[in-house]
């Protein structure tokens, strides 16, 4: 069924052109299909191309060759402007380093994502979401006054405030201690289970993937290896 595949990747390659004509092949033929509402975890050693894959799916950089469809958009020949629109409406990013704007409060960080997307009215469900994330009482603080786990949950709130069909989380617990990691993973799991949010998560940690009840994929040398299921189906 095509209609419930929100991400379709076929034969995707990505070559970075470094200065001095050095070419770095980061992806060497990736095939991937993700259904709406799925939670997919991608594991793999560092340098295996996980982030590159996310950057392409999220429209931060164009693919070199291959076919990529995300939320109904063909990314193959997208212009810079179209990729910007894709980032604005179709995906939300969560990074290892939280990437909150340091001069703005938590609430303002979330606010600005709405502003960029064109200041649409707040979804009343979003209020619920904030309490679901357990950060509603921390919203007036600046990022530096928040714990890592809180910052990451603010980042998650920011990533989904415009209700993108896809949430991409690149090692969201990579900078967190186990307790904070658990809070963040619980949050992601809840989003997926309760709101049906499609989530792709990169992690170093197989336990994290298992905790989230995610379909787990392994990457190595720019390719996705054999697929295993952790009992979601």
């Amino acid at each position: 069924m095509v209609h419930d595949s929100i991400i379709e990747v076929e034969g995707l390659t990505k070559v970075y052109h470094m200065s001095g004509r050095v070419e770095v092949p980061a992806l060497r033929g990736v095939d991937l299909s993700v259904k709406t509402g799925e939670f997919v975890a991608i594991l793999g050693p560092s340098g295996s191309g996980k982030s590159s894959l996310f950057h392409i799916i999220g429209g931060l950089t164009p693919p070199s060759t291959g076919c990529v469809r995300v939320a109904g958009h063909d990314l193959t020949n997208m212009t810079d402007r179209e990729r910007t629109a894709l980032r604005r409406h179709s995906v939300g990013f969560v990074f290892q380093r939280f990437n909150l704007l340091p001069t703005l409060s938590a609430a303002e960080n979330i606010e600005i994502a709405k502003h960029i997307a064109g200041d649409r009215q707040t979804d009343p469900r979003f209020e619920n979401l904030l309490s679901l994330l357990g950060i509603e009482h921390r919203l007036h603080h600046k990022p530096h006054a928040l714990s890592g786990g809180e910052q990451q949950r603010v980042a998650i709130a920011r990533a989904i405030v415009n209700q993108p069909p896809i949430l991409l989380a690149d090692e969201p617990t990579g900078n967190l201690d186990s307790q904070n990691s658990k809070a963040v993973l619980t949050t992601l799991k809840t989003l997926n289970k309760e709101l049906g949010q499609t989530i792709l998560m990169i992690t170093h940690n197989a336990e994290a993937a298992a905790f989230c009840d995610a379909r787990t994929l392994h990457m190595l040398d720019g390719k996705i290896l054999a697929e295993e299921s952790t009992g979601r189906q």
């Binding site: 999220g58 409406h89 990013f93 990437n99 960029i116 920011r158």
Partner: peptide, 9 residues
């Protein structure tokens, strides 16, 4: 970069 990742034009 953060703003751009959020889709800022």
């Amino acid at each position: 970069g953060i703003l751009k990742s959020m889709g800022a034009s």
